[in-house]
Design a binder for these strands. Structure first.
Lengths: 242, 242
DNA sequence: TGAATAGTGTCTCTTAGACACTATCTG
DNA sequence: CAGATAGTGTCTAAGAGACACTATTCA
């Protein structure tokens, strides 16, 4: 059935990064402006081809993170999101792209990448609404990334990756509110997160706010998964079905 | 910074399938015996290279499903599990494998694939315990597949994909028990699943059992996600942390 | 009839969410 | 002091799990 002389097709492999952070209470994604064809001038996810045939994919993701966002591996969440390989998605040939999801705390400056012509933190609202157009199938990848992040906030300690080394519970709540796009009751949230074993730990000190009573500081605890989970409130529309 | 004459490395792309089903109350995975090097004679996941440069990855997964398990797309769950591309995982060169998770109902016969030397449904217990050794990094892929399946039973209607067109609630419960590896109370389970909107629907008829009262028959409902979810009981060990 | 499985009722304990209230800061 | 944010107490309604009980079949 298989031709003896047949040999498997060769493809090109890229890595794309969906890097989320929080700025001004909004969930934002890092986009670069493409400096070369195809899609020159369009916004796109940071990423690129494997450097050489021996480069591990995860390693390539870390490298792109360094090169395009000047971010090093510490205090940073990086996980595989999915692989996108529809023929025709890239006019340069058959390109299979492995997408990674990265979460980083708010950064001091808007990132000056080395490669990209221009890089910036775009609000995901702008992207989802279509007001910011993306190259390739990157809209789809970002959409998948958002859904993954939303879901992981429920069951994992991912939210702490959005925060600095130490943080207040109100800050942690802002993460949940921004990613889920909901409002939460601060008082119930306050106890709920503290009740999850290993999620957050006291980190001494208090932080002065502009106003009001200074809040206690916490740091990420040892738990990777949350028992019990923090479920997002069920929006009226996203019912299972009827 | 980048050499002008540089061009991206080419890689080979494969698709691997983790196909789960239930046989004799046990979660089982389809394995084939490799007929060619490397790892000739070893057990491995069904899968193979892309056929040609224009073949979509998902399409390739469907093709392998047909070829190696004689299964067609209807009444079958197929989703991307992850991509495995560590250099050196395949001695034939730089191979990047996209793994898919497939769930099928119990099949009439043990599957006679066309390609594989021998194919059979192996209990996942055998695989996880190491009593059945697998080629490449397929143990890792199977492990990831199990965890994905366990997790998806909680939040999605995946369990019905293990069942026939119509099924009893007791049969559905066996799916949960086999995949999660726990015992559930039939009476509480009975109402719990029926309370989830859109999960299952009555399908007329009753089924005679060997003994006891015949059970009502149900079929899969329209809901893809479960609200509220069916959470697995927290095993003592898998606590979040302490 | 008894054994076996299907299906229902109900109790208890825990939790999620609402929200009143107290505490501690700045100006 | 007022205003603002942090943190606590408490009530209520809904859900999870335990388990007694009823229903319907076969032998």
């Amino acid at each position: 059935m298989i031709d003896e002389s047949w040999s498997p097709p060769e493809v090109l492999a890229t890595v794309d990064l969906v890097i989320f952070t929080l700025r001004e209470q909004k969930l934002r994604v890092l986009l670069v402006e493409r400096g070369v064809e195809p899609y020159r001038g369009k916004r796109a996810l940071p990423g690129g081809f494997l450097r050489h045939a021996d480069e591990d994919i995860l390693e390539a993701a870390h490298r792109e993170l360094r090169e395009e966002a000047d971010l090093d591996g510490t205090r940073l969440h990086l996980e595989q999101l999915g692989t996108y390989g529809t023929p025709g998605r890239d006019p340069r040939g058959r390109v299979i792209s492995v997408a990674y999801l990265a979460i980083v705390p708010e950064l001091p400056d808007p990132v000056a990448g080395t490669d990209a012509a221009d890089a910036g933190w775009e609000s995901v609202g702008e992207v989802l609404s279509g007001r910011t157009e993306l190259a390739f199938d990157h809209l789809r990848i970002v959409t998948d990334g958002i859904e993954r992040a939303r879901s992981k906030l429920e069951h994992s300690a991912l939210a702490t990756a959005f925060c600095q080394e130490t943080f207040t519970i109100a800050e942690l709540q802002q993460v949940y509110e921004a990613v889920w796009g909901v409002r939460l009751d601060p008082r119930n949230f306050y106890r709920k997160v503290q009740k999850v074993p290993g999620f957050i730990e006291p980190a001494g000190q208090r932080r002065r706010a502009t106003k009001g009573r200074p809040a206690r500081l916490f740091k990420a605890g040892p738990a990777a998964v949350l028992h019990p989970p923090l479920m997002r409130p069920e929006s009226i529309d996203s019912e299972g079905a009827r």
